[in-house]
């Protein structure tokens, strides 16, 4: 069902998160719709990987959001990405 909301953005998000963490199998994404054309992703990673997806001063997280936002253009939605343990 999440496929329907923003498949490109979600695929990109999953790839990015899996790439930067040390435990890629523990990455999961929950997708929800927040208002018209806006999709929210809640990304869960292993606790030990939180620092990796967020990065120094949120640099990695911010880069992830930028790239996911670009991908979401293909899905004609805007996105928000949150990281949870």
């Amino acid at each position: 069902m999440s496929e329907a909301l923003a498949p490109t953005a979600e695929a990109v998000l999953l790839h990015l998160c899996r790439s930067v963490v040390s435990m890629p199998d523990e990455v999961s994404i929950e997708t929800s719709s927040v208002g018209d054309d806006r999709v929210r992703f809640d990304v869960t990673v292993n606790k030990e990987d939180m620092g990796r997806v967020i990065g120094r001063r949120g640099r990695v997280a911010s880069a992830i959001r930028t790239v996911v936002g670009a991908a979401a253009a293909k899905d004609s939605v805007s996105t928000e990405v949150e990281f949870v343990e």
């Binding site: 790439s19 930067v20 990065g55 640099r59 990695v60 992830i64 930028t66 790239v67």
Partner: peptide, 13 residues
């Protein structure tokens, strides 16, 4: 900006 973010993530990875 997207390219720079991609580059950053490439480096981190």
């Amino acid at each position: 900006r997207t390219l720079d973010a991609i580059q950053e993530l490439t480096r981190v990875t």
